[in-house]
Simulated assay, not measured.
Amino acid sequence: MQQDKLGSGWMVVAAFFLTLMGAGVKTAGNRFGMHLYELVFWRMAAGVVILGGHALWHKRDFCTRYPKQHLWRSLAGTAALLLFFYGMLHLPLGTAVTLNYTSPFFLALLSVLLLKERPPLRVWLALSAGMAGVVVLLQPSFSAGQTWDALLCLASGAGAGYAYLKVRELSLLGEPAWRIVFYFSLTAAVVSAVAATAAGWHAPDWQSLPVLLGIGISATLGQLALTRAYHVGRKFTVSALSYLTVVLSALLGAAFFGETLGGWDVAGMILVILAGIAGSLR
Rank of each mutant, 00 (worst) to 15 (best):
C153M: 05
S8V: 09
Q2T: 15
Y243H: 15
G33M: 01
G159M: 12
R179W: 06
L91S: 10
M1P: 00
P120D: 06
Q3H: 15
L248Y: 04
F16R: 13
L173S: 04
H231V: 10
A155E: 04
G7A: 02
A155R: 09
A79H: 12
V12I: 09
M21I: 07
F256A: 08
M21R: 11
L75V: 15
L107G: 10
A150H: 00
P104I: 14
F256E: 13
F257L: 07
L251R: 06
E38P: 02
G87T: 06
A144E: 01
L20H: 08
M21K: 05
Y164Q: 12
P104H: 08
I273Y: 06
G233K: 06
Y162T: 05
G52V: 09
D205A: 07
S111W: 04
F256S: 13
I50K: 03
A160N: 11
R43M: 09
P140I: 03
C63K: 07
I270T: 02
L241D: 02
L226G: 07
G87S: 03
G279K: 06
T237Y: 01
F41K: 06
L244K: 05
P176M: 14
A96T: 10
L110H: 05
I217L: 09
L110V: 14
L172S: 12
F17R: 12
G262S: 14
R168N: 15
V135C: 15
L241N: 02
A203E: 07
E175Q: 10
K235P: 09
V246E: 00
G47K: 02
A255H: 07
G233F: 03
G47N: 05
Y86H: 04
T95D: 15
A108D: 14
A76L: 15
E175S: 13
T78R: 08
L82M: 14
V194T: 13
F32A: 11
Y162W: 15
E169F: 11
V194D: 13
H231P: 12
G130D: 03
W264Q: 09
Y162V: 14
L138K: 03
S171E: 05
Y243F: 09
G161C: 06
V194M: 03
T245F: 01
A132V: 11
L121I: 01
L81P: 04
W264P: 09
A45C: 15
F184H: 15
A46M: 13
E259Y: 03
Q223W: 00
